[in-house]
């Protein structure tokens, strides 16, 4: 009986293909460690809209004020929300 069970386990494992490479879990762990935590992402807890037009469309219906940040940079504008230039 034990031999039959062992044979079944071997055959099942063979049907599923080779076992998962341990390196996969290492990569997933490195991702978890590199993903910023909630505290460092607090900037994204503000109620952002991508444009003044979109912000005013919402403010009129929600009756909330709007805060506009404006800046210039001679080589290229930047995306304050995402953080990229």
């Amino acid at each position: 009986m034990k031999r039959l069970l062992a044979l079944a386990v071997v055959l099942t494992a063979g049907a599923a293909g080779p076992a998962q490479d341990p390196a996969v879990n290492d990569i997933l762990k490195r991702f978890d460690a590199a993903r910023p935590d909630t505290k460092s992402l607090a900037f994204f807890s503000l109620d952002w809209e991508p444009t003044l037009k979109a912000a005013l469309a919402r403010s009129k219906t929600e009756r909330r004020p709007v805060f506009l940040i404006a800046n210039t940079n001679i080589t290229a504008g930047c995306n304050f929300y995402s953080g990229h230039t």
């Binding site: 503000l46 109620d47 952002w48 809209e49 991508p50 444009t51 003044l52 037009k53 979109a54 912000a55 005013l56 919402r58 403010s59 929600e62 909330r64 004020p65 709007v66 805060f67 506009l68 940040i69 404006a70 800046n71 210039t72 940079n73 001679i74 080589t75 290229a76 504008g77 930047c78 995306n79 304050f80 929300y81």
Partner: peptide, 21 residues
Amino acid sequence: LRPFIVTYWSGRTTDDMPADV
């Protein structure tokens, strides 16, 4: 800033600004 809906505009100079900004 939490009471507000927050938005931004950024460009090379103010010449790039859309009319609403």
